[in-house]
């Protein structure tokens, strides 16, 4: 009798988990059909960044999928910078976020801003993944080795090895003006980001 009872509970728990994984899908694009790994619903935020608005943004230099190295300091005095950390290639929310930014190019340009997309994936993975999105106008950088070093500098390397879904807006002087460490399961809305950009000196 006791065995049967625990079996039923076990069965129900499995059913429950199954129903959760089904729910994980978030308006997935037909483009990536069958290629996107669904991690299910994750713990929203695992870290607390030490960085604050008004602080100097830590400099970094990372390889990009186009081959050249890109560093934050190269934009000093020239452009406002938006850094978009996304957790991982080939996952549901991330695979939509950058294609959205891709058609918002004019909004970034209007505010004299460049966008840098960063994940902890390696270059070949990022290359294959972003190819699926079409041509991106902004640099995509790999924070693969030493693993997640830049994410760590920004205080957003999760204990599971990926970065948080985070946005940092950095002005021409290299000062952090906006931080959004977002729920990893959902996409930050574009409007907020553009509003922050509009506040900056062009």
């Amino acid at each position: 009798m006791k065995n049967r009872a625990s079996f039923i509970i076990y069965f129900l728990i499995i059913l429950l988990f199954l129903s959760f994984t089904v729910l994980g899908a978030l308006a997935a694009s037909e483009q990536f059909k069958g290629k996107i790994f669904n991690p299910g619903v994750l713990k929203p935020i695992l870290t607390k960044t030490h960085l604050k608005k008004g602080m100097k943004a830590p400099d970094f230099s990372l390889p990009s999928i186009s081959g050249e190295k890109v560093s934050l300091s190269q934009f000093r005095g020239k452009k406002n910078v938006v850094i978009s950390f996304v957790p991982a290639a080939w996952t549901p929310v991330c695979s939509d976020q950058w294609p959205g930014y891709n058609i918002a190019k004019s909004l970034f340009e209007k505010n004299n801003a460049i966008l840098l997309g960063i994940t902890v994936d390696n270059i070949p993975t990022l290359y294959a993944w972003t190819k699926e999105m079409g041509d991106l106008w902004f640099p995509v950088l790999s924070d693969f080795y030493p693993h997640g070093a830049v994410a760590k500098k920004y205080g957003i390397l999760r204990t599971d090895g990926v970065s948080e879904r985070a946005l940092f807006v950095i002005d021409k002087k290299g000062i952090i003006r906006y931080i959004d460490v977002h729920d990893i399961n959902s996409r930050p809305n574009l409007e907020m980001l553009i509003k922050e950009l509009e506040k900056l000196e062009k």
């Binding site: 308006a27 694009s29 037909e30 483009q31 939509d96 976020q97 294609p99 959205g100 891709n102 058609i103 699926e132 999105m133 079409g134 996409r187 574009l190």
Partner: peptide, 10 residues
């Protein structure tokens, strides 16, 4: 559609 979906853009 979704503004974020590359296939919808295409």
């Amino acid at each position: 559609f979704s503004m974020y979906c590359p296939y919808c853009q295409k």
